[in-house]
Design a protein around this nucleic acid. Sequence first.
DNA 1: TCTGGGGTCCTAGGACCC
DNA 2: TCTGGGGTCCTAGGACCC
Length: 420
Amino acid sequence: MIALVDCESFYASCERVFDPRLDGRPVVVLSNNDGCVVAMSREAKALDIPMGVPWFQLKGYAQAAGVVARSSNYELYGSLSTRVMEIIGRYAAWQEVYSIDESFIGMHGTVDELTRIGHQIRAEVLQSTGIPVRVGIGRTKTLAKLASRGAKADLSLGGVCHLGSYSPDRLDRIMAGTDVTDLWGVAGRTGKKLAGMSIHTAKDLRDADPKQIRKRFSVVLERTVMELRGLPCLPLEAPRPYKDQLIFSRSFSRPVETAAEMRQVLSIYAQKVSSRLRTQGQVAGVVSAWAMTGHYVTEGRHSAHVSVGLPTETDEPIMLSKAAQMLAPRILHGTRYTRAGVVLTGLRPKTSASPLSLFEPEFEGRRIGETLDGITQKLGPRAIGVGLGGMRGAPVWNMRREMLSKRATTHWDEICEATA
DNA sequence: TCTGGGGTCCTAGGACCC
DNA sequence: TCTGGGGTCCTAGGACCC
């Protein structure tokens, strides 16, 4: 059997761990730039605040209704996630950490045994970290996901739902009451196309002809059909040694319109992403950069892309920053760009085979990257940078985070204080 | 004024090979 | 009119996830 353990309203729950005043109050967490709502506590959901609503639209109502808003504090969430995942891992020989707030584990046992273990996991994670979790158990990942929805919907289950505890009739009724787009792997576009074939519920999809589904859609949806029937098609994945790509992208707090400013943006973003690259011990072979106007503008929409193959794979910030700045000629002067990003692909672990010295880039071997990382770690992210990245103050286009909580688990000077 | 960010997998189609 | 067949690799774009 497979269990999905997922954290309830994870970001909002993290905010509560070190600020118990938030208990029982509606809490929303905002995306970068304090843009829109990306997480809500149960109380906020009860107010029918739509997920994804822009903060500037919600602000007035939120303040009147006593909603507490927080900027997203990924350093805190990442740190608490690591603790939660470690505890969950103690309960299984095989664990897949699927996302910051979800983990699949493999389990053996009777319905009663597994349900009991589910409750134990819940209790221990709550006791040790303050984060409430739900446990959904089924024969496949897709069914475990469905069970997790059940645990959320039916409070009488106490946070643990094992699909094996239902009769076939009851399971049919549950699936018939589940919209097909609420399934894992089925979103809006596929949902629309399925509706055209009179497939509206999870039960409809389970009972559809897999071959037809594969022909009309893809092998991905065919797998969903089989998984709904209890046939595992998606194995628990082992942790990967490294990623296929790394991205650093941000929206600006105000539009960037000049090539000079955009060069600064790209230089800094490239340095940010190169630092992640070094953390993972990888080198990159291809640098891509893009810039675009907002989704919501009606006039003057524009986007620019460029992709550069590097002569030698590298993790050095100077090379990568120069490559990213090759986007500059594609930038239309006077366009109101609202976001940009730098993407590294062609990633390999750094250890294997060093390039012939003839082709070594100018700065290779001088350990510029390592040196910057060391200084940054000691003195903070803006202490040093290459070229346009070495800024005393934050650039004017830098993102907004006006309601940021403390990073209580990763910075000594932000540690939680208790007062009598 | 103000609408997130970081990933994965799959497929189709082009380039290229013999 | 009519222009091989079979294979691999790579990339761009679509769809989805949290």
